[in-house]
Design a protein around this nucleic acid. Structure first.
Length: 124
DNA sequence: ATTCTCACA
DNA sequence: TGTGAGCA
């Protein structure tokens, strides 16, 4: 059952495809990478190659940004969740899935305290 | 035709 | 972020 997971993680999509699938501009997509939100591979021509997982992640990032959240905050949460998942769960079978799951969880939380305060929970 | 990096309106 | 320049 991990074969699909593997395929899902294969970076074979050029940025052009990602643009169409996410409705984002190349600029934005590259910018997210710059902020450490996505980590596309690079082919021999230095071209960015994205995986389906990347698409998924970018799609979510796009959503959160649409909800009016700062890149830095998303970045922060994502890296934080990623490391926690790495330390507590399986330290080898990374958490592309887990990370994304945790990411959305945290992000919803953080998103709520965006225009309010930090004492309570998410204002959902 | 496509993508890349860099830099500026 | 958009956009254009100059490469690969």
């Amino acid at each position: 059952m991990k074969e699909k997971d593997l395929r899902r993680s294969l970076s074979v999509l050029p940025i052009g495809t990602v643009m169409k699938l996410t409705s984002l501009t190349a600029r934005q997509i590259r910018y997210y990478e710059e902020q450490g939100l996505v980590s596309p591979e690079r082919n021999e021509g230095n071209r960015r190659m994205y995986s389906l997982n990347d698409i998924d992640l970018i799609l979510e990032i796009k959503d959160y940004i649409s909800d009016g959240m700062n890149i830095s905050k998303i970045k922060n949460v994502y890296e934080q969740r990623k490391q926690e998942a790495f330390n507590s769960g399986s330290r080898n079978k990374l958490s592309d899935q887990e990370a994304r799951r945790l990411l959305s969880d945290e992000l919803l939380n953080v998103g709520g305290l965006n225009s309010k305060d930090v004492k309570g929970n998410n204002s959902f």
